[in-house]
């Protein structure tokens, strides 16, 4: 069954899009991450113009994160104070990111910039998770010395506006939280991701938040960041395809229910290794595209394909 996408200006197979959504939904249910960082490249592989894929994916994340955040709020896993401060940075970053997309598309280097940033992020996150989870599986524990804080921790503690976050049980600088939000906001606009795969490790490893509160708070702030980025993309680039977004969300919701049930059969370290391997596979495919001779030397500029 085919459906014509009004903004992408092309027909797609409904079951292919539902299937891609479901695949990413299973993964996000399994690992507790948004999965947007996998969906955008999958949509591009499926022939959706890159700019439409990224913007519509962000639109889909609004739906997915709202549904997840509501569940976590009921369980008391959302640090609203942390989320709101982080959001201030996220909204500023998202606005700057959408303008950056417009400039890059104007000079025609959006696609390649997006792919390079992707490769770097996927390598860093995938590599870090793989090493961390293999070490955890071998039973090695991080030998952190609480008496000798790292240079990074000393730097964060030296920043002004230190404040207490009760739900997370941490004390840190507002400036650091806003800065982290800004960085992730720029990436969210550029890559069409909610930023969960960057925010989550940052909240756990850099802010020291408990994993479950990090997941809940991350989903809470993603609702607002992705709302902002969706509207910015609609204004600056006219690339949000709401029909595509709803199809993806329908697939991912169903997938997420299965994923959440599968996840109880695995150990946390096994899940993280599996996720790391998937992330690294996507990275390898993107690198392959950058270094191998393209099928056609001249292509329509991204976002082309009309109304």
């Amino acid at each position: 069954m085919e459906i014509y996408l009004p903004i992408a200006g092309m027909p797609v197979n409904v079951f292919l899009i539902l299937g891609l959504g479901a695949l990413v939904g299973v993964l996000s249910g399994l690992f507790g991450v948004g999965g947007g960082f996998l969906l955008t490249p999958l949509l591009i592989f499926a022939g959706i113009p890159p700019a439409v894929a990224a913007a519509s994916d962000t639109n889909q994340i609004v739906a997915a994160s709202a549904s997840g955040a509501l569940a976590h709020k009921r369980l008391g896993n959302v640090d609203v104070k942390m989320g709101v401060i982080y959001l201030v940075g996220g909204v500023l970053g998202g606005t700057a990111g959408a303008q950056l997309v417009r400039v890059l598309r104007g000079i025609g280097s959006y696609d390649v910039t997006m792919k390079i940033v992707y490769v770097i992020m996927l390598t860093l996150v995938g590599g870090f998770m793989l090493i961390e989870s293999i070490n955890a599986l071998r039973g090695k524990k991080k030998e952190a010395d609480p008496n000798k804080p790292s240079a990074f921790k000393r730097f964060v503690q030296s920043l002004p506006l230190q404040t207490e976050f009760k739900v997370s049980g941490v004390r840190t600088s507002i400036i650091f939280v806003v800065g982290l939000g800004f960085l992730v906001g720029v990436l969210a606009a550029l890559l069409g991701v909610g930023g969960g795969f960057i925010t989550m490790p940052a909240m756990i490893y850099l802010l020291g938040m408990p994993t479950i509160v990090a997941i809940g708070t991350d989903l809470f702030q993603i609702v607002f960041t992705s709302m902002n980025v969706t509207i910015q993309q609609a204004i600056a680039n006219h690339t949000v395809d709401v029909v595509l977004a709803i199809l993806l969300f329908c697939g991912s919701t169903i997938g997420a229910q299965f994923g959440a049930r599968f996840s109880k059969r695995f150990r946390g370290e096994q899940l993280r290794i599996l996720l790391a391997v998937i992330v690294l596979c996507v990275m390898v495919k993107l690198v392959f595209d950058l270094v191998s001779t393209p099928a056609s030397l001249v292509t329509l500029t991204a976002g082309g394909g009309g109304h």
Partner: peptide, 14 residues
């Protein structure tokens, strides 16, 4: 259009 897209997504999600 952007606001509509967000409202549709929020409603669907909830």
């Amino acid at each position: 259009y952007g606001i509509l897209a967000v409202i549709i997504a929020l409603t669907t999600g909830l």
